[in-house]
Design a protein around this nucleic acid. Structure first.
Lengths: 326, 326
DNA sequence: CTGTTAGCGCATTCAG
DNA sequence: CTGAATGCGCTAACAG
């Protein structure tokens, strides 16, 4: 069943069917009704493929991220998908993992499918060897980076002011009398560097001690690191992390040593994920505005697609969420 | 840049270019090399749309679920997406939420895009008013239901033996001397009913008390329910739930009443999500084999697509995971 | 082994 | 307001 069949049955030309299908005006009311009747009769659904042949678009965008099982990515992806759906776009989801070849493969698939845009969530393409392909693609397809940054034509970014969040966290803890800080982070992404910078910047403003460690992602790595640190005699009264899950690992380790949180040691997570209310005590954390990020990324994209002028960089302010660990 | 341009530059016909592009044999080695050189020179990527025009497929499948922010869905979706990617398929992600019109809209978009299959994760289409569209679509497109069930031609399902999981949990807790059970569940999906059945079936085998409550999803609803129950004087020594998050709400409430877990009250969650290791004490739960479900769903789909015969129903056995709450 | 040809289903001129 | 004709880029016969 195609547009010809409909046209024949409705006694009109395919052009007319196309017109009512796309609501593009210039159809007499009575003609329209005639066609619509046939359309409904057969429950006709036009082929996006054939349409794409002409318009060179499938009204589809690709969202590329490391791993959707990570709550941060899941939240942002959800927000993007929902906003896009309102605009009539579908979303192709790509979990690249950390393998470079995988990333290239996904990129290629998206280009083949002529997606209207690619949205990078996190910075799955921070590896320099991926710069060339990304720049190449950007020649024909706008790219939006959520929580990442890339200075290049047709590449836009939406970021959370992560560094500010860390600064404010340190400020707050210092005001609470803390003076010996630990910062645990697990990723050297754009966002990861921002957080780190914010932390370093903040502690340098005060006369406080600070230690910084890069660890593997996950609860266990954090637990083990803190254990090792404690066993080695390091003392601290505040721990900041780049991820809620890391903070929970810290909490668990602290509990095993019978530290009082937050009296003896304060702990702050990052992202305000559901994890932060699952642990005990409930985790103070940073609301990194995951929903907003997705929504605004799509707003930027929409403008770009409409040919409107858009600033290459949008920054969103995070918010501190205080619960029981500070 | 299209296949004609490549053909011209390589001094061959478009058919030959198509042949090397699809690696479909019948090309002399020297010819192939000539073409490949041009292909590489322009970094040529064929149009999946034009190809789809002929093959009537974009090598894309739709995965439809309620909300990817839910860890269960995220895990299954991730597993599906990864397995599909290996087979050269892309995944369109749809978060339907609970609105019926949304669901219809998503279905229509997927049909327009001629997806090779639709995978339903959870049972986003359990509403009877959606039966007609689903059955209609199944006439042309195989449908796979992950943790749901629908007896109909060209609809296949992969499910976890959730009822068995609940039975085994009760068995175990009875063997531990528990005799007064509470079951809290938050969804009347197919899977939700299976769990419920399993619970009822199990408690009926023993001389134990049991109460069952349907509550809203989330930590807070569980917390409030248990609080109300406790305040009303209800006594129990074991709580089972249909979700880890619910169990954590229970745990939090129990803690606020200074109950010893598991000595006085045992608690079990469901899904073995990351949440279960975040709470304190760490939650005993059911590994509902999220990864396996996705992987097997794709295996089933692949067979269906190849025209092989497949059993309409695949059942996976869950596993109990004992941590600190039992 | 290679080339020619004919559509796939639709949007879009351009006439009328 | 409506219809006829064209072509998007590719695959799949078919002929050679």
């Amino acid at each position: 069943m195609n547009i010809y069949d409909i046209a024949k049955e409705a006694n009109v030309s395919i052009a007319t069917v196309s017109r009512v299908l796309n609501d593009s005006g210039n159809v007499r009311d009575i003609t329209r009704q005639k066609v619509e009747a046939v359309l409904k009769k057969y429950n006709y659904v036009p082929s996006a493929i054939a349409r794409g042949m002409i318009t060179n678009s499938l009204k589809t965008i690709g969202i590329v991220t490391i791993d959707i099982r990570n709550l941060y990515y899941a939240n942002v992806a959800h927000s993007i998908e929902q906003s896009l759906s309102v605009l009539g776009f579908n979303t192709i989801l790509c979990n690249t993992g950390y393998d470079i070849d995988q990333k290239i493969k996904y990129l290629r698939m998206l280009v083949e499918k002529k997606v209207d845009s690619i949205i990078l969530v996190g910075s799955p393409f921070k590896d320099p060897s991926l710069d060339k392909p990304i720049e190449q693609i950007s020649k024909n397809t706008p790219i939006i980076i959520v929580n990442g940054h890339y200075e290049y034509p047709n590449i836009y970014s939406v970021q959370c002011n992560d560094s500010k969040a860390l600064e404010k966290s340190v400020d707050y803890l210092v005001s609470k009398g803390k003076n010996s800080f630990l910062y645990l982070y697990d990723a050297e992404t754009f966002s990861g560097r921002q957080k780190l910078l914010g932390f370093m910047n903040a502690v340098s403003k005060y006369n406080v001690k600070s230690e910084i460690f890069l660890i593997k992602p996950g609860l266990e790595a954090a637990y083990n690191k803190v254990k090792k640190l404690l066993d080695s005699g390091l003392a601290f009264d505040a721990v900041l992390t780049s991820e809620d899950l890391t903070a929970i690992g810290v909490l668990k380790c602290l509990a095993s040593y019978n530290f009082q949180v937050p009296e003896e040691v304060s702990v702050m997570g990052f992202n305000n994920s559901v994890l932060s209310i699952c642990c005990t005590p409930a985790l103070s954390t940073v609301d990194s505005k995951m929903e907003d990020m997705g929504r605004i990324a799509v707003k930027v994209l929409h403008k770009v697609l409409k040919g409107e002028k858009v600033e290459a960089n949008t920054i969103i302010e995070p918010e501190l969420v205080f619960r029981e660990t500070t």
